[in-house]
Amino acid sequence: MLTRITALSIALLWAASNYGLFAQESEDTGPFDAAVAAAQKRVVKIYGATIGRTPGYATGIIISPDGQILTANGVYLGEGSVRVTMPDGSQQPGEVVRRSQSLQTALLKVSVPTPDYFALPEQPAAKKGDWVLAISNAFKVAEGSEPLSVNIGVLSLRVRLDARRGYNDFPYEDDVFLIDAITSNPGAAGGAVVNSQGDLVGLIGKVIEGKTTGTRLNYAVPADLLAKFLRNEEAAPLVAATPTGQKGELGIRLFALGGRKSPAYIDRVVSGSPAAEAGLKTDDLVVAINGEVVRDSGDYRRLADGVIAGEEVTVEVKRKNDLLSVRLKPTLIKTSIPSLNLP
């Protein structure tokens, strides 16, 4: 189910801009001022890698006094030098501790004390119909100590996420809060969703956009699921963090005959490689990588050159009359494994 901008959303945005909900200085005191002020001290800006048109920035929430930060998983965390801009404007290097594939979140660590932080509740801090506030660095509106954007909406319902990203299953596999607020924008992922008292409701999720309609889903990862992730109590296994953002190796070798315009048939699979572990075989025809269509060997080379070691990749292949989709994690390129040598 994908949401669209409704008349209610527009009215809420108008009310927010006219009643100081975007953290602008005002002498008036609004009903959410205390919640907004508390959240601003507990939300950070995150900067990292950029690949193609994917933004290299996001948002994060502080969840402990010793510098633990939760954010949405993404390519911006694939680079070795992740920068975290703290609420006071200071910049700190961020270390990726671990990731959750099922929740599409990541745990970071900075080496400075963080006395202001969100407590992760064991039970949801809001219910259907409650007002919620979304605080994030959408569109990178803040670079230093400037206040983050604040959006207001209503928590619609809690539901199991069953969406698709491109032509492949979106890897999120758990409940989400659907919210009537416009949060699905570049940079907003990893931001905080709080109730009117400033208690954490959830974490703004990654952008999910319908391939055919162009509409986006506004949702948050519930805070009680974040608490389970922090305690290592997820049902799904955790994906280990990668030490660098270097180019990854899939272990696929194509037939070189015909040059770049030849079909992307697999000639061989490197023994012990991610492709071998995923069960790919000689004569499989690669038709898509991460939802992008592979029309020929040139398309494959372009897409394969962009994969990052440790960042999960979805590869679709045609095997006789069957269409198969596999997920694999590229490894670091080793000199003992030759690179593709297409004309």
Rank of each mutant, 00 (worst) to 15 (best):
A304C: 13
A256L: 08
L178Q: 11
K211Y: 05
A304T: 06
L226T: 14
E312I: 06
Q197M: 13
K320N: 07
V96I: 10
V44S: 10
N232D: 12
T212A: 13
S81D: 12
S196K: 06
V193A: 02
N341A: 15
S184N: 03
I333S: 07
A163N: 05
K45L: 01
S325M: 00
S111G: 11
D283K: 15
L238T: 06
E277P: 07
Y76F: 14
D299Q: 11
N185I: 15
P171Y: 12
V159R: 01
A7L: 03
S325Q: 01
N232P: 02
L200N: 12
P55T: 14
T282F: 04
L250I: 01
E27K: 14
D174C: 06
G166K: 06
D267R: 09
E292S: 15
S149W: 10
L217C: 14
A15T: 13
E79V: 05
T59M: 00
G129A: 00
Y117V: 14
G202W: 01
G214A: 00
G198R: 15
P263K: 00
G30A: 15
F170N: 11
E173S: 11
G20V: 09
A235K: 15
S297Y: 08
I252E: 03
T314C: 03
I337D: 13
D33C: 09
